[in-house]
Amino acid sequence: MHIGFIIEHWDNLEPLKSSTLTIIRECVKRNHKVSILYTNNLTVRNNIVHGFIQTINEMDKIPENIVTFYKKVQFEKKLTALHAFDCIMLRKDPPINPLVLNFLDAIKDETVIINDVDGIRKANNKLYTTTFHDPNNTFLPVTHVSGSKKYINKIIEESVSEKLILKPLDGSGGKGVIVLEKNAKSNINSLLDFYIDKSGDKYVILQEYIQGAENGDVRVLMLNGKYLGAYHRKPAEGELRANIQAGGTAHKYTLTQSQKNVCRKIGAKLLADGLYFVGLDMIGDKILEVNVLNPGGITNINRLNKLKLHQNVVDFLEEKVEEKIEKRAELEYLLKRLSELRE
């Protein structure tokens, strides 16, 4: 089958860290045709959505070493109609331009898209957790989102906690995440001036500080609504953010039973929204964020546990494509039978 990956840029992939590259290599190993595509290469030709894609040329022998594979990959560039893909994986850091989803709308009934286009619309930013029903904050931290300095200041004043987490709504990779000390009131307004502009288009998240946050968080990968794997991300010394991009380190981790229960609790919701491959950031039993566009962690979980989670992901892609082919064949058969009965 032909699998496309919408990514930021091939040159930016880090072979030893990239989950995307690991999945791509597995697809190539299974003799699937693999192409990459950048969002600025999407186009429409005579009302049909195309892309200037780069297809990986066949290799005589596929290197076992991921770095060698990355270096040896060569591409053939070609303008191609996107409905020629059997499957497309979106693997680009958020936020994604809504126009990209409009392009993909044209093919979503013909091509398997992971994650689902409408699901990404719902979960394209950190507001998605508001769709989970957790009025008593059993698995979601107390969270406020606003573009109003006045409102954010009011919440800070009313808070009984001495520490709060402030971060931009559209950030990723731990960028812009800071700890607000309530007693440092003189700095709060200047910080809010930086995060919120006068247009009101910039939103911030104000979140309760969860005890134990200084020890990092847990990245949990979910596939098809079920727990796939996890690892512990510890922040660098003097750093709050545990993200690997921010200097955090990866450590082996086994989910507690209560954490597994939380994963089960939201798994059905993820599946219903077409969010098949998802990363959860957790501290204790609380979900801080849901990552639906480019969740990483496969390489770390594989290394720490001697697993091959990328194989599970490609198995799933193959199953979804086969499922769509079977449904299409079934529909064509029913339409044919209906036509014959009318005659």
Rank of each mutant, 00 (worst) to 15 (best):
A213H: 08
K185G: 00
N243K: 11
R30N: 03
E323M: 13
S35W: 10
N189E: 14
E289M: 10
I283G: 02
R91P: 01
A123W: 02
A250T: 02
T20F: 08
K92W: 04
H310Q: 15
I301K: 04
V278F: 01
K269T: 12
H9L: 01
L338F: 09
N40K: 15
E289V: 11
L309G: 07
W10E: 05
N97K: 09
V160I: 11
D281S: 04
E318W: 00
E289P: 04
K150C: 09
V34Y: 04
K182M: 03
R91I: 01
I113S: 03
V292Y: 07
V290G: 00
D285Y: 00
Q211L: 10
I301M: 12
N312D: 15
D105Y: 04
V142Y: 07
P168D: 08
T39V: 13
K17C: 02
E319L: 10
E332H: 07
L288E: 07
T130D: 08
L288Y: 09
N187Y: 12
H310S: 10
T130L: 12
I156K: 08
N243W: 07
V49G: 10
E237C: 01
Q311H: 06
E323L: 13
H32C: 08
V160S: 07
S35V: 12
I114S: 01
Q257H: 12
R303F: 10
N124Y: 12
V218Y: 00
R219M: 03
S159G: 04
R241S: 11
K234M: 04
Q74M: 11
H50C: 15
Y333C: 06
L341Y: 02
Y231F: 15
K61E: 12
S186L: 12
L223Q: 01
R342E: 13
N294E: 14
G119H: 07
R219K: 06
I210Y: 06
F5T: 10
A250C: 13
K226C: 10
Q245E: 07
L191M: 13
H232A: 03
V262H: 01
T39I: 14
S18W: 08
I107E: 03
L307E: 14
T111L: 02
I325P: 00
D281V: 06
T111R: 03
G248H: 05
I188L: 07
F194D: 03
K126L: 04
L275Q: 11
G147R: 12
Y70P: 00
T20C: 08
V117W: 13
F85T: 00
N302D: 15
P63F: 13
Y209D: 00
R45Y: 12
T22P: 00
I301L: 07
Y151V: 13
L304Q: 07
N40W: 12
P63Q: 14
A106M: 07
E208G: 05
T130I: 08
S199E: 10
S18D: 14
L280I: 12
I178T: 13
K260W: 01
L169F: 07
E208A: 09
A123Y: 02
G267W: 04
Q257K: 15
A246S: 15
L338W: 06
I113E: 03
P63I: 13
N189Q: 11
N187K: 08
F139M: 09
T254F: 07
A184R: 15
V117P: 08
G296Y: 02
R91M: 03
R25F: 01
S161E: 15
L221M: 11
I23L: 09
G284D: 14
V204I: 12
N183Q: 15
